[in-house]
């Protein structure tokens, strides 16, 4: 009996020592951020070790933002979520209560440490002469964009197009709906996430234009041979995409990782992390870094989600069941 107690004690001690020294976090993220977080995680681990002497490993999971949100609701043990749009995190809060409904106010800048926007990626030489959104609805143009029902990027893409159509048509909704219908008629492939769409365009050589996150477009250009094959076209009007981050309080508390997880999210706002973001073509929030990298981020007139009445309204109107997206995909095919 004494032996048993002692061995239990030893195990408890060593495991508690280990958990103090070796922490694991799960960051459930949206699709394009694979390279970004690989770099950030390495840098954070280094900084954490220097600060506390402990090791932290951050595991990543990547997929379409909406899909990831659903996974978290269904039990994927995320300590932090870094998704493509605020609505997806709202849904997690609503449907599972794993984080408070005011999560977005808990971190600076609407909990979005970096922003991005939507651009077009076309083949080198722009053979189809695609300059702006209205070129996308020309017959014979093949568009690649992900599925708005699963991908965060796809919803930003859609809203960018919708916003443009509304402006062009003096806010006439039925004209805008028509525009979207024609646009999606030209869509050849609907992937689950932004990265899937990029793969389709780049690797499989399908499509004339990829509607993409700005950072995805740059990533593609910087791939070996990319500069000779693709070029970026910035539309006349785009949308400010704010991919937010949040601490999944209940899960991290259960894991005992709340402190590290919070530090991790705070780290995203530090100059070091902001530089990493900028290098990966995410628009940084920190003015100093933004100025330093200003050249690689063209000034584009941008709408914000507020112009669409906020995410709750936009999701309901466009992307939920029987919303506008469902209707433009209906019969008549």
């Amino acid at each position: 009996m004494k032996k048993l107690l002692i061995s239990c004690l030893v195990i408890a001690l060593t495991s508690s020592l280990m958990s103090a020294a070796d922490i694991k976090l799960l960051n459930v993220s949206y699709d394009p951020t694979r390279e970004l977080y690989k770099e950030i995680n390495t840098a954070f681990a280094k900084s954490w070790k220097a600060k506390t002497g402990n090791n932290v490993t951050i595991n990543q999971s990547h997929d379409g933002s909406g899909k990831q949100a659903r996974s978290v609701i269904f039990g994927l043990q995320a300590d932090v979520v870094t998704l493509g749009l605020a609505y997806d995190i709202d849904v997690i809060a609503q449907k599972s209560g794993l984080l408070p409904s005011n999560w977005q106010t808990l971190l600076p800048n609407n909990s979005a440490p970096y922003t991005s926007t939507i651009v077009f990626l076309v083949r080198k030489g722009n053979p189809k002469k695609i300059k702006d959104w209205n070129d996308l609805i020309r017959p014979g143009v093949s568009i690649i964009t992900p599925n708005p029902k699963t991908s965060g990027g796809a919803r930003w893409n859609y809203l960018g197009a919708w916003g443009y159509a509304m402006r062009q048509n003096a806010n006439n909704e039925s004209a805008a709906t028509n525009f979207m219908k024609q646009l999606f008629k030209n869509v050849t492939v609907l992937d689950t996430g932004a990265r899937g769409a990029t793969t389709t365009f780049i690797q499989r050589g399908i499509g004339d234009v990829l509607i993409a996150w700005e950072n995805e477009a740059w990533l593609s250009i910087n791939e070996p041979g990319g500069k000779d094959k693709f070029e970026i076209v910035v539309p006349s009007l785009s949308i400010l995409a704010e991919p937010p981050v949040a601490l999944v309080e209940k899960v991290s508390q259960k894991h005992g990782t709340a402190a590290v997880a919070k530090a991790y999210l705070d780290y995203l706002y530090t100059p070091e992390a902001q530089e990493i973001a900028a290098k990966n073509y995410y628009r940084p929030r920190l003015k100093a870094v933004a100025d330093k990298y200003a050249k690689q981020f063209p000034a584009v007139p941008m709408m914000t989600i507020a112009d669409f009445g906020g995410w709750q309204q936009a999701q309901k109107k466009h992307f939920d069941d029987q919303g506008i997206f469902d209707r433009i995909y209906q019969p008549g095919k």
Binding site: N59, S61, H62, S71
Partner: peptide, 10 residues
């Protein structure tokens, strides 16, 4: 794929 969660390395 459906049950996995796609957690890299795990």
């Amino acid at each position: 794929s459906v049950v996995s969660g796609h957690i890299r390395g795990e």
